[in-house]
């Protein structure tokens, strides 16, 4: 199967600090990769390097058949249009602009349609479909700023889907939400992956936020790729205990995993 993402000995540095250290991985098209690891492991940097939002120091990176280091700024823009990106939202300042849900979702078509061109009827239908897929169509005209954190995540998912991407990058989509919304977003991400045939890369701290049946999992620590395999292989109590520096145990139910401190036994 063709690779959606291929990294070979990819390193990212900020001044003298190594953020990603010689990371190599191959992700086939249609796969779901979960990226796990402690704070400062380089998870978000790994995600940012794929759409060329962060420039690597060295190594080889191929995304959707494009060798990223050889791309011109315009070609990078074209690549980004094929990648739906939902960044960490809880750490971002709220926009003061009075925008409705539909306007935010339509931003997903802005890059695709091209500079200076108005959105067409087809673009608006694609946005309607994206909102329907995440069950936002009923609140399309509501102000974005008054939505709950969970609803805002859905809007950004719809915005990313409106790009009709080949690759979806999600950074903690269920983070900092209450339990109901964590589960709603997890189920939604799983459903979108299964029904749309997308390749998904999702960064998360918490394996509870991963839908059942995902194909790949990677564990990062200190910028290094410690393990790459299935989620079951990554959910290794001994490895995670060592990484986080406290004894952990792992519970598994229907393909979903929960990590708990050993002391809670």
């Amino acid at each position: 199967m063709k690779a959606a993402v291929e990294m070979r000995e990819l390193s990212v540095r900020h001044r003298r600090t190594v953020i990603l250290d010689q990371v190599s991985l191959v992700l086939p098209q249609g796969a779901f990769l979960a990226v796990l690891g402690p704070n400062g492991a380089g998870k978000t940097t790994l995600l940012n390097v794929i759409p060329a939002l962060t420039t690597p120091f060295s190594g080889y990176l191929k995304v959707l058949d494009a060798e990223v280091s050889r791309l011109s700024p315009f070609a990078r823009g074209r690549l980004r249009r094929r990648i739906g990106y939902v960044p960490q939202l809880h750490s971002r300042g709220a926009s003061v602009m009075p925008l409705c849900v539909r306007e935010v979702v339509e931003m997903g078509r802005a890059g695709v349609r091209g500079a200076g061109r108005s959105l067409t009827l087809e673009d608006r239908q694609i946005c309607d479909d994206a909102m329907r897929q995440v069950e936002l169509d009923r609140i399309a005209d509501r102000a974005f700023g008054v939505l709950s954190g969970g609803e805002q995540r859905k809007v950004h998912l719809a915005r990313a889907l409106a790009q009709q991407p080949d690759l979806l990058l999600l950074d903690e989509p269920a983070g900092h939400l209450d339990f109901r919304w964590q589960e709603a977003i997890t189920q939604l991400v799983g459903r979108l992956w299964r029904t749309l045939g997308l390749t998904v890369i999702m960064v998360t701290h918490d394996p509870r936020h991963l839908p059942a049946g995902i194909t790949h999992a990677a564990i990062l620590s200190g910028g290094r790729l410690i393990r790459m395999g299935t989620l079951a292989e990554a959910m290794d109590a001994a490895l995670l205990s060592e990484l986080y520096g406290l004894p952990l145990r792992i519970l598994e139910t229907d393909g979903r995993y929960v990590v708990l401190p050993e002391a809670l036994r």
Binding site: R80, Y85, G108, A110, G111, L119
Partner: peptide, 23 residues
């Protein structure tokens, strides 16, 4: 007016606009 959708996206969130392929 001419770059309506691009300016709106940049004013909303510059990083998200960049990630969507907008210059």
């Amino acid at each position: 007016i001419v770059f309506a959708k691009e300016t709106k996206a940049v004013l909303f969130d510059r990083e998200i606009a960049r990630a969507s392929g907008i210059h």
